[in-house]
Design a protein around this nucleic acid. Sequence first.
DNA 1: GACGCCGACTAAAGCGCTTTAGCGACGACA
DNA 2: TGTCGTCGCTAAAGCGCTTTAGTCGGCGTC
Lengths: 347, 347
Amino acid sequence: MTTERPGRRATIADIAARAGVSPTAVSFALNDRPGISEHTRARILAAVAELGWRPNVAARALGGRRADTVGLVVARPARTLGIEPFFAQLVSGLQARLSTDLVALQLLVVEDLSAEVDVYRRWAAERRTDGVVVLDLERDDPRPDELVRMGLPAVLVGGDGTPGPMPAVFADDHAAMTSLAEHLAALGHVHVGHVGGIPAYVHSARRVAALHDAGARLGMNITTVPTDFSQDEAAAATRALLARDERPTAIVYDSDVAALAGVTVLAEAGLGVPGDISLASFDDSELVRLAHPPLTAMTRDTFELGELVAETVLSLVRGESVPDVVRAPTPELTVRGSTGRVPEVAA
Amino acid sequence: MTTERPGRRATIADIAARAGVSPTAVSFALNDRPGISEHTRARILAAVAELGWRPNVAARALGGRRADTVGLVVARPARTLGIEPFFAQLVSGLQARLSTDLVALQLLVVEDLSAEVDVYRRWAAERRTDGVVVLDLERDDPRPDELVRMGLPAVLVGGDGTPGPMPAVFADDHAAMTSLAEHLAALGHVHVGHVGGIPAYVHSARRVAALHDAGARLGMNITTVPTDFSQDEAAAATRALLARDERPTAIVYDSDVAALAGVTVLAEAGLGVPGDISLASFDDSELVRLAHPPLTAMTRDTFELGELVAETVLSLVRGESVPDVVRAPTPELTVRGSTGRVPEVAA
DNA sequence: GACGCCGACTAAAGCGCTTTAGCGACGACA
DNA sequence: TGTCGTCGCTAAAGCGCTTTAGTCGGCGTC
């Protein structure tokens, strides 16, 4: 156990004294730099262990070194984050990978994009983080350029798969949505509703495009209703779809939370799933697995995605070469009980 | 906008030069210390704004000041965190309150308690965080004493409401569980199952005690099955309860996620809720509101709880006086469609 | 008119590391 | 034998702030 010194905590000087060397030697030993004999190094490490000493991160960072911290700023209402499995899983994965390298994750939730950029500016000026992870890329998003300008290394999650000003981790939403559309087409569905996300988001737009492309190709009639990802709007969108003259025989939801809201609306309307109408969620998660019936969804390992993003940002801040576009696995179709053949009557 | 200097970023010396004063004056102006005239202060602040300068946090922390960071270490499997609304909401609330004071939240997920203590030790030695938030208090928990020993300020969430070695934010689980028991008793339930949490957790134990106390008082027969909070165990526990000779007419779940698992088991067993059996969840959340039928639950604002905890830890690290026990609002009963009168046959 | 005090400010030290420059000893090489 | 290179290590500067200990001029007091 650590022997508490009276008053102040141990510093590098205490270690040096105890090992009978200079502070420089301690620093060299600690950072695996050459010029310290094995014998001396061992003595130093022993002193470190005995006093339970750790270099003060602030002092370390001051010497122009890294802060060993990666930042994540999310521009969404703080209260809604708690129910987004995607987000929570991503953070868990990020955290898991970062912590193996003793790098901390700094989390911040803000109101909007401009507040988000302000935070980046602050962090960059304060040297608080070595790099950041950027989510929910939008069309003409100001963040990449701003980040380049302020010299804060960043990794984008999402994007359109084309090389941009900074590395991006990209999952092929288009291919994923296409396979979901093909699944529905194979079951005979023609009129398909789509409860989409925020159109400004690049990934939302890409999903809409994919679904409509596939619809055109496979002779399906797609109706997309955009939402802000909230349950209220998802429920309203579902009701709107049900009220259409040509009522859809299947509805695709952009997120798991939205899909659950949809399940509730259908239950209230007395419609059976998949007997009367088929449901599918683009995001898979515990939530849709627990629904009754469990929902057909595009499965991806979001935790793993987080790890991949962390890996990328770690390489980036270390100055290692990072590909412009890191491909994450494409989500794969998991068929569960919520999708079935189109009902006879409506066929 | 900031004028980028060639090479290095602005430091306090640049601001001082621009304002025609000494670095000391800049520091004083920034920290609202007396001894700077209004006129000079204004000139300094103008220079700060023009260069978009922010004090380097590392340099600041090095001067023995605060790190402006609060830590949260969670000893649970990282993958399960993503589906715990309680946890996500708490973090959101914490974050929201901390960020208004520009204090960062450091998140870390570890395997077990001993790894958690190691992280505290590291953080204390590195001066990385000013204080920490401790969750999931256990019986004979080693953490409070260890934290006191290493001099890391901490706030406990949970606990038993008695003053301990450090401030605790306490919600009266006992009273909450009692009101849930009374609700079931009023509906005529006698045989009540309880899918509990990890018995080592103080809050789990307190809930069990409350339920059994109320049972004794109200003539109910309570059967508690402990679980590790996972859905698998919750499902298994539910099946075990259903298989009992004296099948319960109501089941209480300690968490929302567990309750959802229970809903699925009942649906598979062909039992109607609340026709055949009543269900209630101790934790309320979006999840149980979305279930069909929506579940009766004990409602509390976890986001607000997070804010309260943040408030407490902020006071603590600032050296302000903090009560030993901060009382959070007691969760309140929200009756929804999942609890009903005990069925005739079983009554 | 001498003294003390106060307000406004500065010089310099110090926080705990990392890093650069350099030093002495020793062996290799010519 | 002299020189150079290398190894193992140290002295000292420097990172960008905060803080302590002043300095200096003006004003009130007796």
